[in-house]
């Protein structure tokens, strides 16, 4: 058991990730508005909130337009997640788009670029009703991002799949290099075990990613460099297995597979790390998208995300060693026909 501590650690980490990652509530947010256009005059807007408690106190609401404010003449909480707001919109706001700000229970909730104001002008007299209030540090909760909502938790179950795959493929690369160096079949077995375990994680990554994409971006598959890269990597390693399957002499097989593996890995790295940075991607942090590391991956998410990566990598390594040990016994049984 002494040498198995890391396996237990992996499981414990994942246990922590499942519990904290699924139980932590999302921060309250404004998710839907009944109007998207506010012409001058009286306008009534119904605001849908998520995890909000509008009825718990008297919420204040205002429009923010280029440091100018328009206060709501009325804000009535109909339910905890529904607020009816009335604005008397003046003529001549400076910007086309205004933010909607709601202050409720000591939290400031912002819906960015919420409304389009058709009558733009030189500016209005400032009402001065809405002092920009700094939020006090909130409780432990995950941010509520538009489109993502609760699926932000998939961060702990989708993204680490790719990390684990990369880690296993890197292990396989190292073993392939050693196979070429000293022709040791043990390293060859390690390399193929790492690849097949890595492929498990690649498939999990593809399926979970596809599910997630369907429910946020609206399609099962988009022509996204990250996605295409993932598919290409999966194909490359499937080809690796096909190559192994088509050669029978294990000495030659180990060498050919190692060469292909090294070649494939170099081009895969290129594909995965560089290409997405050259083109726009729907994935965060690439192209024009805001990075998870900038504000999406806030420190609350981090405290679960890093353990999730570590946990999945450890469990993946565990699966790989199991496969490798089985292969070793298999090779031993093959070698000695009548021991």
């Amino acid at each position: 058991m002494k040498s198995g501590w890391w396996k237990a650690l992996g499981v414990l980490l994942l246990l922590y990730v499942v519990i904290v990652g699924l139980r932590t509530p999302l921060a309250p947010a404004l998710v839907h508005l009944s109007e998207d256009k506010l012409p001058p005059g009286r306008n009534e807007v119904v605001v849908a909130g998520y995890n909000t408690r509008f009825t718990a106190d008297a919420p204040q609401a205002w429009l923010q337009n280029d440091a100018q404010f328009v206060c709501a003449t009325a804000a009535t909480a109909e339910r905890d997640d529904r607020l009816r707001v009335v604005f008397d919109v003046p003529d001549g706001l400076r910007r086309d788009l205004s933010h909607l700000v709601v202050r409720s229970n000591g939290r400031t909730l912002v819906f960015h670029d919420a409304f389009w104001n058709p009558a733009k002008g030189a500016g209005i007299a400032n009402a001065g009703c809405a002092p920009p209030v700094e939020d006090t540090a909130g409780p432990f909760e995950f941010p509520d991002r538009s489109v993502l909502y609760e699926t932000i938790r998939n961060l702990f179950f989708h993204v680490p799949m790719w990390f684990t795959m990369m880690w296993l493929m890197t292990l396989s690369l190292l073993h392939s290099i050693r196979t070429l160096r000293n022709n040791d079949l043990e390293h060859d077995r390690a390399a193929v075990s790492a690849v097949s375990t890595g492929l498990l994680f690649a498939f999990l990554g593809l399926i979970t990613g596809s599910l997630w994409a369907r429910n946020t971006w609206g399609t099962w598959w988009t022509s996204d460099p990250q996605l295409n890269g993932a598919a290409a990597v999966t194909l490359i390693y499937l080809a690796y297995l096909v190559l192994r399957g088509s050669v029978n002499e294990f000495d030659k097989r180990s060498r050919l597979a190692a060469i292909y593996n090294i070649f494939a890995y170099a081009l895969m790295i290129v594909f995965f790390l560089v290409l997405p940075r050259l083109t726009d991607s729907l994935h965060p942090g690439k192209g024009g998208n805001p990075a998870f590391s900038q504000y999406d991956l806030d420190h609350h998410l981090r405290t679960v995300f890093y353990p999730a990566v570590a946990g999945w990598v450890l469990v993946g390594t565990w699966l790989y060693t199991l496969r490798r040990r089985a292969r070793r016994i298999e090779a031993w049984l093959d070698e000695e026909p009548s021991a």
């Binding site: 290409a232 194909l235 490359i236 080809a239 190559l243 081009l267 594909f271």
Partner: peptide, 13 residues
């Protein structure tokens, strides 16, 4: 089988 996936990054760029 071996060539297509490996040539893909090149082809796409």
């Amino acid at each position: 089988v071996l060539g297509f996936p490996i040539v893909l990054p090149l082809l796409l760029s």
